[in-house]
């Protein structure tokens, strides 16, 4: 796997690698891909994929109003905030 492909995957994952990291990462990552690609060789025709580990059933509850998190609690862990809102970097000019 080349550095261009790594950069593409990183972009999808919202990650960025430094230029000096990317080559060694590519080598290691190719090794992992190579290892897990053994599943490609399994013959699995006519087998249903298992998407959940339990018997699926709908779980419903009464449609009753419940109290939600107080605003002050919700803001407790915010890296930047004012009295009412999370503060984020400016995204529009």
């Amino acid at each position: 796997m080349d550095t261009k492909a790594i950069k593409h995957i990183a972009e999808l994952a919202h990650l960025k690698f430094k230029d000096e990291e990317i080559e060694s990462f590519a080598i290691q990552f190719s090794g992992i891909i190579n290892y897990v690609s053994s599943v490609e060789k399994l013959s699995l025709e006519r087998i249903e994929p298992l998407t959940r580990p339990f018997e699926a059933q709908n779980v419903v509850r009464q449609d009753m109003a419940q109290s939600s998190i107080p605003k002050e609690d919700a803001l407790l862990n915010a890296p930047k905030r004012n009295e009412m809102f999370f503060k984020v970097p400016k995204v529009i000019e």
Partner: peptide, 30 residues
């Protein structure tokens, strides 16, 4: 953590989903 996020993103990405994730779900059934 970055390695695993990268691997997970790769096996779900367009063109590789069936070959990796799809196959793994079938292997899980077995």
């Amino acid at each position: 953590v970055k390695r695993r996020i990268m691997l997970g993103t790769y096996v779900l990405s367009s063109g590789y989903y069936d070959a990796y994730y799809g196959k793994a779900l079938k292997a899980r059934r077995l």
